[in-house]
Design a protein around this nucleic acid. Structure first.
Lengths: 336, 336
DNA sequence: TGCTACTATGGAACCAGTTCCAAGATTACG
DNA sequence: CGTAATCTTGGAACTGGTTCCATAGTAGCA
C-alpha cells in the first residue's frame, strides 16, 4: 500500500542505508544524493512509519503521564504545561486518568514496562517502595510532579510551608480560632496523596509558633471536592465555639467552605475568613485568598527533568522546589 | 536483555507459533502445552513487547484525540468521558492540545497519517473539505465530538435549539431586551468552531418567533473567556438602553457577564438576568441558569462510535444528536 | 483397517525501519 | 605516483512479534 523505505531506495537508485541516512539528517550523504532521495520521497508521497521506527530504534517518542483525577483544575493546568513542553520537543503524550486505588496500582504497573513510552510523568501520586523498585528495574525514566520519593527526580512545592503561609496570614489578621478542611484518610491512603497532609502540618506549625493547639474537632477530613468540604465546614460552623477562619487544603474545598458560610447566612470575610490553596483560575473570580503555586510551570519543568533523564543525564537537584506565595484577596479580614 | 518470544519457546520446548497462540488466547493449543508455555512465561518474567506487536499486527491499540483548549471545563469533561470509555476497551489515549490555528492544522495533518493510532477523535473542530479528503484517503477512522461534517461520523448536540431554549426561557420570564455574548469572528474562523454561532442563530430564532429583531449592538463577540466576556458585557450594560437579560454562549462567558454586572452594581437576577451554556461544574456553585449538555456522555459515545468504525462497522445514524435541557437556577428572573 | 477430517504444532516469511560493517571512490600528501 | 585517510555508499542482519502453510498426530466412521 503505502511506500516503504525500499521503494524510495529503488526509485532514487540508491541503497537502503542512504535513504535512512537522509531521513535522519545524517551528514554522511552527498548533497546530490540527498536531493535525489528527497525527490523520490516527494514523488512517492512517502512518509516513514513511526511504528517501524520505534520498533527498530527502541524509541517511541512518547511520554506517559499518570494523572489522578485529571478533571481537577489544578491537574488540568499541570497537564497543559506538560503538553506544551512535550509538544515543543516532538513527543506525544499518553494520558492515564486515575480515579480509584486499583487503577492507580494498575497504571503504575503497566507503565513500568517501559515499552510503549520512553518515560513516565507521575502527578501527585507517590510511588511506594515496591513500585520504585519495579520502575528502577525496568529502567523506565520517571519524573515526579507535585511529590517526591527516595532516589527519584522531580519537581514539587513545599506544602508544609504553604500551609504555614496561609495560616500565618490568618494569624496576622488576628484570628486565633482557625479550622482546617482537608482530604479524607481514605484518599491519602489509597492514592498516597501527601499534599493535604503536609499543608495541615504547616497549619499546625504556624499555630504552634503562637502556642496555639487547635482542638481535634477543628480539623475535618472528607473526600476531596466541593460537596464534602461544604458538609465539613457546616460541621465546623455549628460547633459551640466555631472557628472565625477556615483554611481549606485546596481552592475547590475552599469553595465548599464558602457555600457552607452562605448556607449559614455568614458573611465572608466579615463573619468568616477563608483561605484556599492552589490559586486555580476560578479563585480570582471568587476573590478567594489562597496560596499560589506554579501549576503550569510544574508541568513544564517536569517534562524538562524527564527529557533530561531520557537523555541519560541526572538533573540536579533531584527534587526541585518551586516558589509559592500567598495571594490575599477578599475572603480574609480581621475577625469581628 | 528482556526475554523474547523465542526465549519462551525454547524454554517451553515448543515452537514460536505456539507461544504466540497462547499469548493471543487461540483455542488451537492443547491444555498441557498451554500450561507449559505459561510456566515458561512466568519463569522468564516475560512480557510481550507492545511495539513489536503493533509493528507486526498493524494495530496500535491507541486513539488520538485532538482537543482545542483542553483546559476549558467543558473540554475536560468530554476528555474524561473519552478516557473512561477508552480505558475500558484497553486503548491508550494520546492527547493533542490545540490553542492556535497553526497547531490545529498541523494536528489534523499529523494525525491523518494513520500510523501511531488506530483512530482519531476530534472535539469541537470541524475538518475542512481538504482535511476530510486527507483523512479519508489515509483511511483513518475518525469520530467527531461536538461537531459534524459531510460524510463523517460523530456525536453532537443541537446548538441552535440550545440557544432557543435559553432565550425562550428569558422571553417567558418577560424579557424583551436580550443581549448576546459569543466567540470572536477570529476564533470561529481560525478553529472553525461552530457552536457559538449556532447558539446565536437559536437566539435570533427565538426572538424572531416573537417578531423581535435585536439591534446589532446587542450582539457582541470576543475571544472566548471570562475576561473578554466581562468587557463585552460592560459595553452592553453601558448602552443608552441596556438589555435586561444576557445570553452568553458558554458558562465561562456567563461568568464574565456576572462580573460585569457586579462591576456596575447590578443585582442578578433583579436588575439583570444571565443565562449560560454547558452546565459546567461551577455553574451549579454559582447558581447559574444554563443549558445542560451531556459532556461526559459525548466523550463516551464518541469513543463507542470510533471503536465501531475501527471494527469496520458503520454507526447509524452518522451524526448522533444528544438531548439537552434548560436548567433554571438563580440568575434569571422577570425583569424589574 | 483404511480413509477422511480435524486438531495441534513448528517455523519460515514478513512487517519497515536502524545499525553497522565492508568496500568503493575520492582526496591529501610525501 | 603510491599509499593512507576520509568520504560515500550498499545492503545484510537485526528488532520481536503475527500469520500462515506444511505436517504430524488423532479421532471418527464405514
Amino acid at each position: 500500500m503505502a511506500a516503504t523505505i525500499r521503494d524510495v531506495a529503488r526509485r532514487a537508485g540508491v541503497g537502503l542505508g542512504t535513504v535512512s541516512r537522509v531521513l535522519n539528517n545524517s551528514p554522511l550523504v552527498s548533497p546530490v544524493t540527498r536531493e535525489r532521495v528527497l525527490d523520490a520521497i516527494a514523488e512517492l508521497r512517502y512518509s516513514p512509519s513511526q511504528i517501524a521506527r520505534s520498533f527498530s530504534s527502541g524509541k517511541t517518542l512518547t511520554v506517559s503521564v499518570i494523572a489522578p483525577f485529571f478533571t481537577r483544575p489544578s491537574v488540568v493546568e499541570r497537564l497543559r504545561g506538560i503538553e506544551s513542553a512535550l509538544h515543543a520537543s516532538g513527543y506525544s503524550l499518553v494520558v492515564f486518568n486515575v480515579e480509584t486505588a486499583a487503577r492507580r496500582d494498575a497504571c503504575l504497573h503497566d507503565v513500568s514496562r517501559h515499552d510503549r513510552s520512553d518515560g513516565v510523568l507521575i502527578i501527585s501520586l507517590t510511588p511506594r517502595e515496591d513500585e520504585i523498585m519495579l520502575l528502577r528495574e525496568a529502567g523506565t525514566p520517571v519524573g515526579l510532579i507535585d511529590t517526591e520519593a527516595e532516589g527519584m527526580y522531580g519537581v514539587r512545592i513545599d506544602d508544609v510551608y504553604g500551609g504555614e503561609l496561609a495560616v500565618r496570614h490568618l494569624l496576622d489578621l488576628g484570628h486565633r480560632r482557625i479550622g482546617f478542611v482537608g482530604d479524607s484518610e481514605a484518599e491519602v491512603q489509597d492514592f498516597n496523596f501527601t499534599s493535604s497532609r503536609h499543608r495541615q502540618i504547616g497549619y499546625l506549625k504556624a499555630l504552634d509558633a503562637l502556642a496555639i493547639t487547635p482542638p481535634p474537632e477543628y480539623q475535618r477530613y472528607g473526600v476531596h471536592g466541593r460537596y464534602e468540604a461544604r458538609l465539613l465546614a457546616r460541621e465546623l460552623l455549628q460547633l459551640a465555639e466555631p472557628p472565625t477562619a477556615i483554611f481549606a487544603a485546596s481552592d475547590t474545598q475552599a469553595m465548599g467552605v464558602l457555600e457552607a458560610a452562605r448556607d449559614q447566612q455568614l458573611r465572608v470575610p466579615d463573619d468568616l475568613s477563608v483561605v484556599g490553596f492552589d490559586d486555580i483560575d476560578v479563585a480570582e473570580y471568587l476573590g478567594l485568598t489562597t496560596v499560589y503555586q506554579p501549576l503550569f510551570a510544574s508541568g513544564k519543568r517536569g517534562v524538562e527533568i524527564l527529557l533530561c533523564l531520557i537523555a541519560g543525564d541526572l538533573p540536579e537537584p533531584p527534587s526541585e522546589v518551586l516558589p509559592i506565595k500567598l495571594v490575599a484577596r477578599g475572603t480574609t479580614a480581621p475577625p469581628a
